[in-house]
């Protein structure tokens, strides 16, 4: 999520200096009454969020829109594939660090196949051959290791994350494979720029829909972030709380077995000790209510 919303960022130095200054600014911030306990710096975060939205509206979105209108879909897919391919290297490393050697092996096999047969990664042959693309980053690895996620933070230009994800993002950038492609700083910057513009272009419709559907854009984005990260950390198989039933049903209902709700487990379920690292699911707040049988 961080990487996806990171628009102007990318430079390690920028990340580092922003991390340090913003941390001290945060320390003196007022809290919001009745806010989400995960978001003690809400008033500060909202201000940065508004700044980012303004930047996106004025700079990032117009560039991404022009990019999308200028380049045919076929070309944009190649750009996406190219970056996706070099990212598979670190996705494999993260899978290994999370104790999933089979997935890591699959990621590196993808890289070898796509880099050669797929011509520098421009064609995602591996997916067609049944080697599934994964989504891993250091933020997820830290979560699997049991690191506390810390408060919610919105960074200028970079977007939303938790403290844990912020460290994860810094590690992602430090280990970014763009430096393996070339040592030329100008080319590296160009690659970052292209990557970010391409990512933003991919998200044009999704962001519009998300924003239009929201009553409070900030809260919608924050809850979206938490749900999405939780899903990623658990590789698309998060333990759902005792199934949340729509309230207001009078007739008694047979309890479906939990296994039916969980998509095919691609990996062994996370061990119990990894669980505290993930914040409570949205739905857990009202868990007792799930069984309420009040009339509609």
């Amino acid at each position: 999520m961080l990487a996806a919303t990171a628009l102007a960022g990318g430079a390690r130095m920028l990340v580092r200096s922003v991390l340090v200054t913003a941390f001290w600014l945060l320390a003196g911030c007022a809290t919001v009454q009745n806010g989400d306990p995960r978001d003690p710096y809400e008033s500060w975060n909202r201000a940065v969020f508004e700044f980012n939205e303004g930047f996106d509206e004025a700079v990032a979105k117009p560039i991404a829109t022009a990019y999308r209108d200028l380049l045919p879909y076929e070309i944009r897919v190649r750009v996406r594939n190219f970056f996706s391919n070099i990212q598979d290297l670190m996705i494999g490393v993260n899978n290994l660090l999370q104790g999933k050697p089979a997935e890591a092996w699959s990621d590196w096999t993808r890289f070898v196949i796509n880099s050669s047969v797929g011509i520098l990664g421009l064609h995602d042959i591996a997916s067609e051959a049944g080697l599934e693309k994964h989504n891993e980053d250091f933020g997820q690895t830290f979560a699997v290791w049991g690191a506390e996620e810390g408060p919610f933070l919105v960074w200028p230009f970079l977007g939303a994350g938790t403290v844990r994800d912020s460290f994860g993002f810094a590690a992602d950038v430090a280990a970014a494979p763009t430096r393996w492609v070339t040592s030329d700083a100008a080319v590296q910057w160009g690659l970052w720029g292209l990557y970010l513009v391409n990512e933003r272009a991919d998200l044009l419709d999704a962001k519009t829909i998300l924003d239009e559907s929201a009553i409070d854009k900030y809260v919608a984005r924050r809850d979206f972030f938490y749900q999405r990260r939780r899903d990623l950390i658990y590789d698309g198989n998060p333990p759902r709380p005792p199934r949340e039933r729509p309230p207001g049903r009078d007739e008694p209902r047979a309890e479906a077995p939990l296994a039916a709700h969980e998509p095919a487990a691609r990996t062994a379920p996370r061990s119990a000790e990894a669980e505290p690292a993930v914040s409570g699911a949205l739905s857990q707040d009202d868990a007792p209510f799930a069984t309420a049988g009040d009339a509609l």
Partner: peptide, 20 residues
């Protein structure tokens, strides 16, 4: 009665906004 896209419930995502 509930749709998850990429692990995000489009319905539950409204709960905080509604409650606020």
């Amino acid at each position: 009665y509930n749709v998850y896209v990429a692990g995000v419930s489009l319905v539950l995502n409204y709960r905080t906004e509604f409650a606020n």
